[in-house]
Design a protein around this nucleic acid. Structure first.
Lengths: 226, 226
DNA sequence: TTCATAGTTAAGTACAGAATGAACTATTGC
DNA sequence: GCAATAGTTCATTCTGTACTTAACTATGAA
């Protein structure tokens, strides 16, 4: 087991591969060329690295025409990378000239396609407190009041329920070590907030920006102080 | 953030350092020389690597006379490494000639000084089911029946309660993604089982072996089928 | 058919950074 | 005091493996 662990660690530990994995951390699938651009290296080199990541079963591929889409082969990969990201030394320790707060990714970020980080957990807490959702042996369900709330909020639950993907489930947050909402409900909430310009995605990062409008609305709807 | 992540990943990814971290994963503190032996390299080299791990705040040191004891600086490190270990390709995939089961570390292992893995979680479930312990917003407490049970089982809770360390708390298991018992109660349970020869520690690994006796007793006391 | 784009494979090179060797400080024990 | 052990520092060497150059296959569009 030890040498297997070491192999996996070195696999992830190469700068170029770590950068590939970082890029893939927002849950989307990328083509080899896109990754080459994102990571700033040659196609041959990317091909070599992707091959190694595939061999170790960290990534999987889907062929579409002449494109190949790479993504994580399972969620454990994303979890492990998040856990590693949480080890990044905090800016305070790193350099005393830049007394920054927590890195933004820890504060507010996406986990695949739903909100994670502090905001994700606070949102979930608020929904639980307002009895919009209920927890029941490690599963979430929407209450009767909750159904009304979602439709008032402008989210069509019936539509979501028809989808094949999981409707609603708890997802463990790495930095907060607390549950937050995943599944299509999680995605719908996130998309709604994005469309209403409460939140904005940043380029090439999983960090999310809370707009001035978002700050107000999050306080109003969820009593979240940003 | 990305380059910070990459730095951390490369830090962990070096074979020698990965081996150091692996050794430290059972939660004990090791001296530099012990680590040099365990990792099979020179004292100078270990010193260099330990220095880097200290700089990144993954490890911390305690000086005791002319010895220096190294250990993880926080539990996030252990969590991240466990999460990485869970990415190790399963033997079935790795080689078709050795159709082994899960690596033993995932099955039964220690997390710092208490039981983790499948057994750790099953044990906790059983204690909850038997109303020996109760869960209350992410905290465990011992019931009145539970107090009797522990004393029957041969564990002196009063003694443990006097200690400075945390008495009882849930600890999240990486492979199972479920809570299990930590704190001094967790340690006492583990030590008791070790002393009664239900379980045995393996050399240089965090894996735990369940003895034939252990198999019987775990079934009897906790209805755990090994 | 031909050109362009997407991606792979193979051989050779380059270099970051790990390991080594030698000389050092610090603490313990006799 | 001195010897032995624990650990560090720095200059030098060495080596694994990432990256490059070049030639290749596969798919799609004109």
């Amino acid at each position: 087991m030890e040498d297997q662990f070491i192999k996996t660690a070195s696999l992830i530990g190469d700068p170029t591969r770590a950068s590939i994995l970082w890029t893939l951390m927002d849950g989307r699938a990328f083509t080899a060329t896109e990754l080459a651009v994102s990571v700033n290296t040659s196609p041959q080199n990317i091909s070599m690295h992707l091959g190694k990541l595939l061999d170790a079963n960290l990534l999987c591929v889907e062929k579409q025409g002449r494109h190949k889409y790479y993504r994580f082969s399972n969620k454990e990969v994303a979890y492990a990378l998040e856990a590693m990201a949480s080890l990044v030394p905090k800016p305070e320790i790193l350099s005393k000239n830049k007394p920054e707060k927590y890195p933004p990714i820890k504060f507010c970020r996406t986990c695949y396609d739903h909100l994670a980080g502090k905001i994700g957990v606070a949102l979930t807490d608020s929904l639980l407190e307002q009895n919009i959702i209920k927890e029941n042996n490690n599963a979430f369900e929407i209450s009767i009041e909750g159904k009304k709330w979602f439709s008032d909020f402008g989210i069509n639950l019936e539509e979501a329920q028809k989808q094949k993907r999981i409707f609603l489930k708890p997802c463990l947050d790495w930095s907060e070590r607390r549950n937050h909402i995943a599944g299509s409900v999680g995605t719908l909430l996130f998309n709604k907030m994005k469309n209403e310009d409460w939140l904005r995605k940043t380029e090439n990062s999983r960090a999310i920006i809370v707009t001035a409008k978002g700050e107000k609305e999050l306080l109003k709807y969820f009593k979240i102080v940003v």
